[in-house]
């Protein structure tokens, strides 16, 4: 039966948009959602499917982008969409892609490249679902994109800390108190770096921020074009969880990049390319102090000077000490010290 079909493992060829005026008009994520005012993740959804186009299936794990987006009878999705369990974005991508592939290969469905995108929040993706995402990134014969929208908390359940919540942030599970000013003392996972470094056959990993919308859409298009399993990490300011005026979402996204807290890059076939302001930082441009970003957000309102300088020092390390700045936190063995221990 396999011989009787025209099945190929091809992807759709999605050329990059050359500037904002060249972006297609059609929307595939429209009205019908009820996210907060200024919700950057909702914008990410809209840009994501604008970039992928209509021949796309989207899967979404439990979280704000499920609960606030798809109230029964009021879906904003123009493309086919399906919910998946909180930790299942990896499996949803893999299962959907495998189902399509099997049917096309066996001649049971018309053969055509269909984009498969599974999105997840930071809680669903970087905490609960990391194992399934990791597994999917090793299945190179199935084309899919996993997009992690990172609003830095379990937002939908009322803003609880996740493994992606920044150090010290005030969440409903980490309230500052009289005995302990800081409850959440863990440093945020390096999710994109980990996915890129840990999955040698995953051909495309990128970080994005919707403040840079064209770049963001083009990375989605690149991921879908290149094929195999791919991964994109998007940093999404969240007015409710981060506690700021919804007007500031775009600006906070920019500040996250300019302070060096969140680097913009892609790793394609093992080759690292920095983007925009991140590239400038790598080339020597001064980073803005982290306090300019942190103090605009209520979740850091309890920070003292000491907390701010700790945070700054950790970000400085990313750029001054990491073997691959902002991406890989390894350090070279200090040659002088090695010599000393060897004698």
């Amino acid at each position: 039966m396999a011989d009787a079909t025209t099945f190929t493992n091809q992807t759709q060829i999605l050329e990059p948009f050359r500037g904002i005026k060249k972006v297609t008009i059609e929307e595939y994520f429209t009205s019908g959602h009820r996210t907060c005012q200024g919700c950057e993740s909702a914008l990410v959804m809209k840009l994501m499917v604008k970039a992928s186009g209509p021949r796309t299936i989207v899967l979404g794990s439990t979280g704000c982008m499920y609960v606030a987006n798809t109230t029964y009878y009021t879906t904003p999705w123009v493309v086919p969409w399906m919910h998946t369990q909180l930790g299942s974005s990896g499996s949803a991508a893999l299962g959907t892609a495998a189902g399509l592939k099997a049917l096309m290969k066996k001649g049971k469905m018309k053969s055509e490249p269909i984009n498969v995108i599974a999105f997840c929040g930071d809680g669903g993706g970087a905490d609960m679902g990391i194992g399934a995402i990791s597994a999917t990134l090793t299945h190179k014969e199935y084309n899919s994109l996993i997009l992690l929208y990172d609003n830095e908390s379990y937002a939908n359940t009322d803003i609880q800390l996740s493994g992606m919540t920044p150090y010290g942030a005030h969440t409903t599970f980490s309230p500052p108190g009289k005995a302990h000013r800081i409850i959440h003392k863990r440093w945020k996972k390096n999710m994109a770096g980990m996915m890129a470094a840990g999955h040698p056959e995953c051909r495309y990993v990128a970080t994005v921020c919707a403040s840079y919308a064209v770049e963001m859409m083009n990375k989605v298009r690149r991921a879908l074009t290149i094929g195999g399993p791919t991964f994109i990490h998007s940093l999404d300011p969240c007015p409710k969880g981060w506690d700021y005026d919804p007007m500031l979402s775009h600006e906070l996204g920019e500040l996250a990049i300019e302070t060096g807290i969140f680097p913009l890059y892609e790793v394609e076939d093992g080759q690292l390319r920095y983007y925009g302001k991140t590239k400038a930082i790598v080339e020597g441009r001064a980073r803005k102090p982290v306090r300019e970003y942190l103090l605009k957000q209520g979740r850091f309102a309890h920070f003292t000077e000491e907390d701010l300088s700790y945070f700054q020092s950790k970000v400085d390390e990313m750029w001054n000490k990491w073997e691959v700045p902002g991406v890989v936190p390894f350090r070279r063995v200090d040659a002088a010290r090695t010599a000393a221990t060897n004698t």
Partner: peptide, 19 residues
């Protein structure tokens, strides 16, 4: 799969596209 949770989720999603 890398665990039974994924094992069942993978086939669940494959089934929804007609497999």
């Amino acid at each position: 799969a890398e665990g039974e949770h994924s094992q069942f989720e993978i086939v669940k999603h494959a089934s929804t596209v007609g497999a």
